[in-house]
Amino acid sequence: MVLELIAFNIESCRLIEQAGGGRIELCANPVEGGTTVSYGMLKAAREAVNIPVFPIIRPRGGDFLYNSEEYTIMQQDVRLCREIGMDGVVIGLLDRFGKVDKARTARLVELAYPMEVTFHRAFDHVSEPLAALEDVIQCGCVRILTSGGADTALQGLPSLQQLVGSADDRIIILPGSGIRSGNIRQLAEATGLQEFHSSARTILKSGMAYVNGNMTERLETYTVDPEEVRACIKAMNR
């Protein structure tokens, strides 16, 4: 069984590998749900760990309806990830009616080869999940990261089970959102799935000795709790 974890910095990448994580989704900007990291971060992450690294290809936060300039950026970032030697990328494109943007998704999958492509939680904003499932399969993606269209994977469990049945082993369904060591076994037993996605997130306090008391901006950063990673893996494989 594989536990994928989100990393927002290089230290998190190392912690995930050391704790036994099986794959990294590499993101910047956690407040907006994750955006593409810098070139320097891509290279550093690839050099820091040996486990698979899948950068998210998302030029901004917000919705998943991209204009031509944003799509050009996404194409360039996919090429860059391939050149650096990443194992895969994570993408998600919709049209204004909540359907998968098949033409541009398929083009990105083609550009990414031989990297794997995961379709991310843009999937949770589609208007017709079962039709979108078929579209993503046709585009050539390897997996779909989804909470079943709910705020958390546990809340979306009935939809996840329906997606698993409809997928029929043609694509990997990767549950994500709100997955922790306390519920991952329940999800595994209820779905029969072999891959799970978690942030195992914790907050790292600033190391600054001086803090300007007139500023309300928080100087904390997100990182990974390695003990929670280990607990998830233990529960998942129990």
Rank of each mutant, 00 (worst) to 15 (best):
M1W: 11
L5Q: 05
L5D: 08
I6T: 07
R14Y: 11
L15N: 13
E17P: 05
A19W: 03
G21Y: 10
R23E: 11
E25Y: 01
E25S: 00
V31E: 15
G33S: 01
G34Y: 12
T35E: 02
V37R: 07
G40K: 02
M41V: 00
K43Y: 11
A44Q: 08
A45M: 06
A45R: 10
R46H: 10
V49E: 02
N50S: 15
N50Q: 15
F54N: 03
F54A: 02
P55I: 05
I57L: 14
P59V: 03
G61E: 00
D63I: 02
L65R: 02
L65P: 00
I73D: 14
M74H: 04
Q76A: 15
G85A: 07
G85N: 12
M86E: 09
V89L: 09
G92D: 14
G92H: 13
R96E: 15
F97I: 09
G98P: 05
G98E: 00
V100D: 06
K102H: 15
E110L: 08
P114Q: 01
M115I: 11
V117M: 09
T118K: 01
T118L: 04
F119C: 01
H120E: 12
V126N: 01
S127P: 06
E128K: 07
E128V: 07
D135R: 11
V136A: 05
C141A: 14
R143C: 09
I144C: 06
I144P: 07
G149D: 12
D151G: 00
A153W: 08
Q155Y: 08
Q155W: 08
P158Y: 04
R170P: 02
I173A: 03
P175D: 06
I179G: 06
I184E: 02
I184M: 04
I184A: 05
R185N: 12
A190G: 01
L193P: 07
Q194R: 13
E195A: 13
S199L: 12
A200M: 11
L204Y: 05
L204T: 10
K205R: 15
G207P: 00
M208H: 14
N212W: 10
M215H: 12
L219I: 10
E220M: 09
P226C: 06
R230V: 00
I233K: 09
N237H: 11
